[in-house]
Design a protein around this nucleic acid. Structure first.
Length: 217
DNA sequence: GGCCAGGACACCA
DNA sequence: TGGTGTCATGGC
């Protein structure tokens, strides 16, 4: 639909003007982005930060280090990020694959085409569509739009698409309307997370929301 | 003290 | 395919 582009850009411009650039992802290296992407699954970033700083303190914030450590020990370090056993396994299985396939080189992984790489990531334990796309966009600079719970909530409340629709439905909405621009996708998703965190909660706080006044259900 | 957070997956019908 | 339970922390 041609109208979608206009609406999506209106939302984007309004958020950017009201909030300003978010300078995402909050991490120092691409490997740290991937750690964060896995640890933040269904978990507040506040808790993830605790796990990340605990890893850093023990000098385990690299996939080479994670691959070689005891899983129980890893699980205890990342405990604040919830689902410790699953996430410890996820980090180690990613680390194992990353070592075998790419020799722990982000550059080598980045050199691959997006589609087959996405499929490869989706084959790894606990790498679902959102985590895969976060890695592709924020760690590897691939033009893919990340959909998360906030995106669904915000755009369903504004009457764009029902919250029950699939991940792919939401992703198509954005990627058919917007150009494949890494910078745009990066900023847009970051802005949506900001809005979701502060205003578009389960109990909405529309009065101070930058999207106040836009078509709403 | 309850609610919620930047999901994914197994299992069942 | 869709519906539902599991995973199992910490801040507000």
């Amino acid at each position: 639909m041609a109208g979608n582009k206009r609406i999506l850009m209106t939302v984007y411009n309004r958020l950017l003007k009201a909030i300003g650039p978010r300078n995402w992802w909050p991490a120092e290296t691409a490997q740290e982005v991937i750690f964060g992407a896995i640890l933040t699954q269904n978990t507040s970033w506040q808790n993830v930060e605790q796990a990340l700083s605990a890893l850093k303190k023990k000098r385990k914030l690299s996939f080479r280090a994670v691959r070689d450590m005891d899983r129980q020990e890893l699980a205890e370090i990342i405990r604040p990020a919830r689902f410790l056993n699953q996430k410890a396994r996820a980090l180690q299985e990613f680390a194992d694959h990353f070592g075998k396939r790419y020799r722990f080189s982000i550059k080598k992984m980045k050199a691959r085409e997006m589609e087959p790489l996405r499929d490869e990531l989706l084959g790894l334990y606990r790498i679902g569509p959102e985590t895969a796309d976060s890695i592709l966009l924020y760690a590897l600079d691939k033009p893919v739009f990340v959909i998360d719970a906030y995106t669904r909530r915000i755009f369903s409340r504004h009457g764009m698409l029902s919250e029950e629709r699939t991940y792919d439905d939401f992703q198509h909405l954005f990627m058919e309307a917007l150009p494949p621009d890494v910078g745009l996708y990066n900023e847009y998703h970051a802005l949506l997370v900001h809005v979701g965190n502060r205003f578009c909660k389960p109990k909405p706080q529309c009065d101070r929301c930058p999207l106040k006044g836009l078509r709403h259900t």
